[in-house]
């Protein structure tokens, strides 16, 4: 899709010495599952790709270079850029040490959806409102709605607004009503016991791989409370209460700070609907504290301020 453009950008930036390293994507074991790739020399630019499967958010890898010299270039989509904004608001990354190569994002494909539509899918290209999938099984034309990641279907911020350069023309957001509100509402409509049962079942699958935490741009602490020995906030066993504690704390620690990038849910190997937790909190933050677009990082997080006339329901 934009592989040539990203390679050119990487070559130029490294040759000019504007940056000392460039973070992009490279093919993984499977072309639908690219790896993050760091290059430091212009001639390595050939390794980079940028296609419709480059869903992973690279922003958080910037933390790996927080103590190293020089500017890091990073390829960011609109959603990823909010992740960077999060890191900036959390003072974890200095903006002048980052060169943002922005991708006006046409939407990324869900590799599971794609594989279901065309087993053995290797590549995809966009044609209007459709995608053409190709692979060992031949070629198949599918509607964008069938194959895009859920989050891309309702993406409000496809183009980074803070990029140092853009790979292409800005793409408008999709003004689609947020379906996740309905998912939260459906859970809210249950009885307390039903919800308890629902989450117990969901959490019981958790293998505590920490992928959700590790990918999350808001989970950017230097040391995580889950790794603390004293106090042991989280039991090492994975019984019901510990699972509940883990998911409660993870969600609450990003409450008012979640950038709604859905990466946690995308990387969860056990398909735990983590965004149902994040969205609940996001909605409540917006409603209770009268905020709009609470997923956009701001100077002070909603729980770091107060208003004397906040809702009073405790008396």
């Amino acid at each position: 899709m934009r592989s040539e453009a990203v390679r050119a950008a990487a070559r130029r930036l490294l040759e000019e010495g504007k940056v000392v390293r460039f973070l992009g994507h490279a093919p993984g074991f499977d072309p639908t599952s690219p790896f993050p790739q760091l290059i430091t020399r212009a001639e390595e630019a050939e390794r980079l790709v940028l296609d419709h499967f480059c869903a992973p958010n690279l922003a958080k890898y910037l933390l790996d270079y927080e103590t190293q010299e020089g500017v890091t270039a990073v390829v960011l989509k609109g959603c990823d850029a909010l992740g960077l904004a999060r890191l900036l608001a959390d003072h974890r990354v200095a903006r002048d040490r980052v060169w943002v190569v922005g991708l006006p994002c046409p939407g990324m494909l869900d590799r599971d959806k794609a594989a279901a539509l065309l087993p053995g899918v290797q590549e995809a290209r966009a044609e209007g409102d459709e995608f053409v999938l190709t692979g060992a099984g031949g070629e198949r034309r599918v509607a964008a709605g069938q194959v895009l990641l859920d989050r891309c279907l309702v993406c409000a911020v496809p183009t980074p607004d803070d990029a140092d350069e853009l790979l292409g023309e800005p793409v408008p957001g999709r003004p689609v009503p947020r379906e996740e509100d309905a998912a939260v509402a459906a859970l809210e409509a249950m009885t307390s016991a039903e919800r308890k049962a629902y989450w117990t079942e969901q959490f019981s699958r958790c293998i505590r791989c920490m992928a959700c935490r590790n990918v999350c741009p808001a989970c950017n602490c230097r040391s995580c409370c889950f790794d603390s020995e004293e106090p042991r906030w989280l039991s090492r066993v994975t019984d019901g209460p510990a699972q509940e504690m883990f998911h409660f704390v993870r969600a609450l620690h990003v409450a008012g700070r979640c950038v709604d990038c859905h990466e946690c849910e995308r990387v969860c190997p056990m398909d735990i609907p983590l965004m149902k937790l994040n969205h609940k909190l996001l909605q409540d933050v917006e409603e209770l504290f009268e905020l709009e677009r609470a997923f956009v990082p701001r100077e002070v997080e909603p729980l770091g301020i107060y208003r004397p006339d906040d809702p009073e329901e405790f008396a």
């Binding site: 003072h91 974890r92 602490c221 230097r222 040391s223 997080e301």
Partner: peptide
């Protein structure tokens, strides 16, 4: 200090 990430969210509160 070893744990502190310097996020500064303790400051406004």
């Amino acid at each position: 200090r070893a744990r502190c990430a310097g996020c500064e969210w303790c400051r406004p509160i």
